[in-house]
Design a protein around this nucleic acid. Structure first.
Length: 275
DNA sequence: AGCAGTACCTGGTTGC
DNA sequence: TGCAACCAGGTACTGC
């Protein structure tokens, strides 16, 4: 399940193989993922040079002069750089073929996604795709801080965990990181967002930044086996404080971790450490 | 506007 | 053993 750190790790992993390189072809094995894949991609992308690979929220953007391909990995999406003759699996939905260069053999950028929650979209030059237009700030920039959370939460009654996962407030905080950050900040995930103090939000924002930055750093281990068929890292599971630990003792105080459903999502917290 | 509920999708796990 | 039910979860949509 790619969270923001894994998307960023993917970006860093593919960048050396794709930036500055020309696309020689696009193969769509199915017409839709989460949404229909814009058919113009197969006409516009071939022949284009990829100038940059950017990440915005959990989207990866391949920028070219003709426009930008937007890839979202959904829950189970994987993007890999492979030899052109790599065997095709059942869930290999898109191949973007990359030219041979003086230093690199021909490659394909392959998008694999068993559950098909991911998507491939197209953004014409000079425009911002509708799906990106109303997103909140990146969590690892200065635009995101405790004051932002505090200001935007005034008067809001939804649980603070749902507020933290709202993409219009801040992007990239998925279910796992929301539970973990709230634990580290000592905040009960069920509390109304509008009831949390400014100081507590400062702590929460800092914990979100810390967790994501730490995970991106650790994601570097994924890079090494980037070309492997499945680089499921599992790097953070050993270190989780509350996520998936229902009934197990809190790593800080020993109180059994509790679980509740908020917004149809499993939420984990320590009733003693989080108030 | 904010918020709760629902749908999408399929591999893996659980229960009978 | 075989099959059904359920779960995971980011995102967008609907309806109150």
């Amino acid at each position: 399940m790619p969270e923001l750190p894994e998307v960023e790790t993917t970006r860093r992993g593919i960048a050396p193989y794709v930036v500055g390189r020309r696309v020689t072809g696009v193969l769509l094995r199915r017409p839709n993922l989460r949404w229909p894949i814009p058919p113009e991609i197969t006409a516009l992308l071939p022949g284009q040079r990829i100038d940059a690979v950017e990440r915005r929220a959990k989207y990866l953007l391949l920028h070219t002069e003709a426009g930008s391909a937007l890839l979202h990995l959904g829950m189970t999406g994987v993007l890999r750089v492979l030899p052109p003759d790599a065997p095709v699996g059942r869930h290999d939905h898109v191949d973007i073929a990359l030219e041979r260069t003086s230093t690199q053999a021909p490659r394909i950028l392959r998008f694999t996604d068993p559950r098909r929650f991911g998507c491939l979209l197209w953004q014409p030059p000079g425009t911002i795709h509708e799906r990106l237009a109303r997103l909140g700030p990146e969590p690892l920039t200065d635009a995101f801080d405790g004051d932002l959370l505090w200001r935007r939460s005034r008067g809001r009654t939804a649980a603070v965990k749902l507020f933290l996962m709202d993409n219009a407030i801040v992007v990239g905080v998925g279910n796992i990181y929301a539970s973990e950050a709230l634990f580290r900040a000592g905040v009960d995930p069920r509390k109304p967002a509008g009831s949390i103090s400014r100081a507590r939000y400062a702590r929460l924002a800092a914990e979100v930044k810390h967790l994501l930055a730490w995970a991106i750093e650790r994601g570097g281990t994924t890079l090494r086996d980037f070309l492997a068929p499945d680089g499921a890292p599992g790097y953070f599971f050993r270190e989780l404080m509350v996520y998936g630990r229902t009934g197990e003792p809190c790593r800080v105080c020993g109180t059994p971790i509790r679980q509740v459903t908020l917004g149809q999502r499993s939420t984990f917290w320590c009733p003693r450490c989080q108030r």
